[in-house]
Design a binder for these strands. Structure first.
Lengths: 194, 194, 194, 194
DNA sequence: GATGAATGAGCTTTCATTCAT
DNA sequence: TATGAATGAAAGCTCATTCAT
């Protein structure tokens, strides 16, 4: 069983995913966790410190789901990318296509005014792009992609396309947006052929 | 000469672009516009009503820059898309790659909890996607693109890729991200050939 | 009629005199002034800013009572010192010998940890000591005091004796303490002779 | 070796000397003593009870330094007063002239609103004044002082002068203030002659 | 004896909005 | 139109104390 602190982080991560950092008020945190003010400040020195822990947690969740479980697995690059796109669609279906990417949301809310958040998020995206690049490299080595493409740029593009798709899906509250765009990605990188 | 009301909208749109809606406080609005509380509530019944006007304004700006000036112009589809991508890069350079897309930002902040904002933004994206689709159709008609691609999905993908690129660029505070990804778009749609 | 701001300063100066700065809570300030929180922060940006205004006010009160009305008057040095001591006793009688010197109290509360308070108070004491020194000089010139005494040190001693007397009077809650000690001062400087 | 309780009192007395009673927070007490909340409430039923013990301790320290070691010693009255003044200067030098008299500080903070503190402090000053009076009496008997002075009032004045000097010294953060004023005392009571 | 989690009233401050002039 | 004083709920946070183990 998780510690109280972890329980708080877990419960609040959902709030912050849905409402953002600033718009998540301490009163809501207390309500959703069922603790009092004093107890909250026993575990965290400030709302900000909790948010720090939450962003770490959200990133860890994403890295587990996308890196450990998929991109780092000893499977074919085609499978990796297909599974990654499937996983992303599944994640978004879990919250009815309404919440968007927890990390992308925070990227937009905090990047301009909060260096710590910005850097944590940026290095997550760096790692994601790097793993995608490696996978595209593998694809290329297997001859399933043109030899003259810049895989670094393509990896960055694929991640951007996913984040943009999630943004638009959230805005339209329609999972089909994400499905359509991941479909385009699959075509682009020949992920659908037998 | 703009009316006082328009002047307020103009000045506050910059604040909201940078900070979001909730994080823009009335006190900042008064400070940046140089008006008093009484005057503010003379022109707007609430901060919310101002935000409504601001989102309309931000959408109008984008539609002028992208639709009227480019996508609706009687120029070749290749030129349209190239100019559109150039214009987007230029816009982002104006705020040192730090602020992101004013509409994308608000999409993320408000879509889950505010139907009016959500719908205004969604119909802007609908229009954008539609105009891009028409342009891609033209490209297809000119034989510059495969005949079997779903242009609706591709238009949606292109817009998503742009929004995702801007998100990542804002997060990295580096215009190069946007340049790299628009480059990939240009390759994808053969916009660079002579 | 004084402005609202001045009215607040006036009413709160009494609270701070009695309880000190930190121990005067905002809730008491609101209660004693009869205003709401919003209004308070309309007039002052913080409790600290109010305290700044209060210390200025308290010093001004003392300077008017002791400097303008007495030490700066064209009267004999003996009369000046006698009137000054009388005035100090009267002031303390007004609060039943219970509150002490508003400035001395704040000197003790704030000097070690708050440079701005410390300096404001220190320069008040500097001015007081200087005016007393000048008066003792006059006394000396009139031949009513030995010629070989260091009037600077004696002025400082007299002020210290007064502040120490008020401290002890407050602690004993007995005006007689102050009377006894001012009596000793009068003897010391031959202020009682006809 | 001191007991844990005494160790706590000792360590906290320094905090209270520097910050006062109210401004010394329980969290600081725990930090400076290195104990937990449970342990604290094992030794003391409240912060208030600790403060009670601290004031007793501070008074005991002063009485040992001034009474037992000096005023109660079988030495000449002149020596007694000189040593007393020296000791007071030494004490203040130990904290760089910044903290003031621990008992005078608490007298000002607590006398108006806290009878128990007030009385403890007042009876300490009573005893001090009494011992000084006895010493001045001895001085008078030795013919070193005029016969017609009121030694009770003079003892009270001397103590007040010392407390006022320490107040002003703390406010100016300059030990010289205390040196100057004790100098005047030495002159006044002929303590400097060979 | 000892730990630190839990409590909840109270703290200073912020905020959008209303009102009197 | 225009001003800024007034409102009061709500924000994030502090604090001495209690309680379960």
């Amino acid at each position: 069983m998780a510690s109280k602190r972890e329980e708080i982080i877990y419960k609040v991560s959902s709030l912050i995913h849905s409402q953002g950092y600033e718009n998540t008020k301490l009163s809501e945190i207390l309500q959703v966790t069922g603790i009092g003010k004093g107890q909250f400040y026993h575990y965290f020195s400030s709302k900000r410190e909790l948010a720090d822990a939450v962003i770490d947690y959200l990133i860890a969740i994403m890295e587990e789901a996308l890196f450990e479980n998929i991109l780092d697995q000893p499977i074919s690059p085609k499978e990796k990318l297909n599974q990654m796109l499937d996983e992303i669609c599944d994640m978004q279906m879990e919250n009815q296509a309404k919440r968007g990417c927890p990390i992308g949301n925070l990227a937009i809310e905090t990047s301009e005014h909060d260096p710590m958040f910005r850097e944590k998020i940026s290095s997550f995206f760096d790692r994601w792009e790097h793993k995608v690049k490696q996978t595209i490299d593998e694809l290329q080595q297997e001859g399933m992609l043109g030899q003259n493409i810049d895989t670094t740029k393509h990896a960055r593009s694929m991640v951007a396309m996913i984040e943009g798709a999630i943004l638009r899906m959230k805005n339209k509250q329609d999972i089909q947006v994400l499905r359509d765009i991941t479909d385009v990605i699959r075509h682009e990188y020949n992920l659908k052929e037998v």
